[in-house]
């Protein structure tokens, strides 16, 4: 057993070219490729968020403009009706005045 252990723990030289292969592996472009993928994904997510924001803002603007137009129409009709009422009142008053004069 002692002999087996000694044999197992015996110092061995690395196979030729081992160090170069390790260094080469660390410099492989694969790693850099991963980071670009992540960057692209992050940019895409940011673009999507920005796009959704722009669409929402455009929708809010459109709804606000539509509401504004409705409000303006509502005020125009109301103003016109109130003027009609006032004119009618004036006619009634005039008629009453004429009757009292007679």
């Amino acid at each position: 057993m002692e002999r087996d252990l000694r044999e197992a723990l015996r110092r061995r030289e690395a196979p030729p070219g081992f160090a170069e292969r390790v260094l080469a592996r660390t410099q492989q472009p694969e790693t850099r490729g991963h980071s670009w993928v992540w960057l692209a994904a992050a940019a895409l997510v940011l673009l999507m968020i920005g796009g959704i924001g722009v669409v929402q803002e455009q929708r809010r603007q459109a709804e606000g403009e539509r509401a504004k137009q409705e409000l303006m129409v509502a005020f125009r009709i109301t103003g016109s009706k109130l003027r009609d009422v006032q004119e009618r009142l004036a006619t009634i008053q005039q008629r009453a005045l004429q009757r009292s004069e007679q």
């Binding site: 125009r76 109301t78 016109s80 003027r83």
Partner: peptide, 20 residues
């Protein structure tokens, strides 16, 4: 026309002369 929360009639005549 039903205006809820209106406090002054003249407010509704903003788009025209409306006196008495």
């Amino acid at each position: 026309i039903n205006a809820v929360g209106l406090t002054r009639l003249e407010d509704l005549s903003a788009l025209g002369e409306f006196g008495k």
